[in-house]
Design a protein around this nucleic acid. Structure first.
Lengths: 192, 192
DNA sequence: TGTTAAACCCTAACCGTTAGGGCTATGTTC
DNA sequence: GAACATAGCCCTAACGGTTAGGGTTTAACA
């Protein structure tokens, strides 16, 4: 079910190395020269691979920036499926989203965030990604045997949670914003 | 403030006519042959204009499909700013969104909806458009002198409302879904 | 009537992305 | 160990959305 952290064979190791080299090179170039000023052909040349190889590892130029997309989604789902028995849903969601917001607001991620915010294409991609995450989250919530909400309520809460993530990231005081938004989500969930 | 329904001069009339001809031609071709099977060059040729003219009227190929984008946004904002004095916010929002959902689920719009749902590019564009609308809506809500909510609460409710629109559209029974979602939104707004 | 600029045209390109087809090294089977 | 199958990579060429550059017409207006 989970991806092995260390691939077994030489082939898989080499593949993972190629992927990582491409991602690292791309991010470095993007930060050095700006996302729009770097072409896929530049990335490929600098990483010493063919253009087609880049696209065999990443579905689009934007995807190069959001390399850990999957981990992100898994954490969200895990926060729901892996929470302690009888632990209520919303606080568990909140905890995870708070961690994710902290991670994105951390110092290390600041230049990347600036880059994303400066590029409409990247912002759009990020939001579209978030919606996919909301779908996964909704599925996970709907599958929880301890909850018996309608499918609509599950999808609604999932989207609200993703909204919270997006809004908190942009807020001047992310912590306070999360407080406020999750009070609202809690109330919404209570009447569902 | 509002766009004049009938442009005054000949130049503006011709411009509007060109724009409309392009939009009509594009939609017709898209529906006839499929969105992906029709290129911008095809649209331009059939509408008897230059490719550059198409892009001087529409920012992208996707924008050709969502021609009434602006009207959409204006209606949402209007539902907030133009509601009766002392009328509560959420029911006004709900009324407008219900009307919009009905409009999109109507028979006339069915082929267009099928086309949108069949194209990832169009779906993504639509969601991104909806987020812009949420921003406008948030601004309108925040500007209401009768309300005294935090900026975060306003933006949150705006996004929730847009979520309601998206979720209801996809639901098997849009009316019932709206009922359910707006009960949640009402509760969220009450604690804001 | 002459001037200005908006709307339009054409050509040529840029850039992300994909198709087609070939090569090599890795993993597997006999 | 030899033979095979194929995953991963390469190259070239193209497609399609989008834009830059620069020219022409014509409505608007002094």
């Amino acid at each position: 079910m989970t991806v092995p952290t260390t691939p077994t064979g030489r082939r898989e190791r080499k593949k993972a190395a190629t992927r990582q080299k491409i991602a690292d090179t791309a991010l470095r170039l993007f930060l050095e020269r700006g996302y729009d000023a770097v072409g896929i052909r530049d990335v490929a040349a600098e990483a010493d691979v063919a253009v087609t190889t880049v696209f065999s590892h990443f579905a689009s130029k934007e995807a190069l920036v959001f390399e850990q997309d999957q981990g992100f989604e898994q954490r969200l789902v895990q926060a729901v499926t892996g929470r302690a028995p009888h632990e209520p849903l919303v606080p568990a969601l909140r905890r995870e989203i708070e961690a994710l917001v902290r991670h994105c607001a951390g110092d290390g991620a600041a230049p990347v965030r600036r880059m994303i915010d400066a590029s409409p294409a990247l912002r759009e991609y990020e939001e579209s990604m978030a919606l996919r995450h909301a779908e996964s989250l909704a599925t996970a919530i709907a599958a929880d045997p301890g909850l018996s909400q309608s499918a609509t309520a599950c999808r609604t809460i999932a989207r609200f949670a993703i909204d919270a993530y997006a809004l908190a990231r942009e807020a001047a005081d992310p912590e306070a914003a999360l407080d406020e938004i999750f009070r609202m989500i809690e109330a919404a969930w209570a009447v569902a």
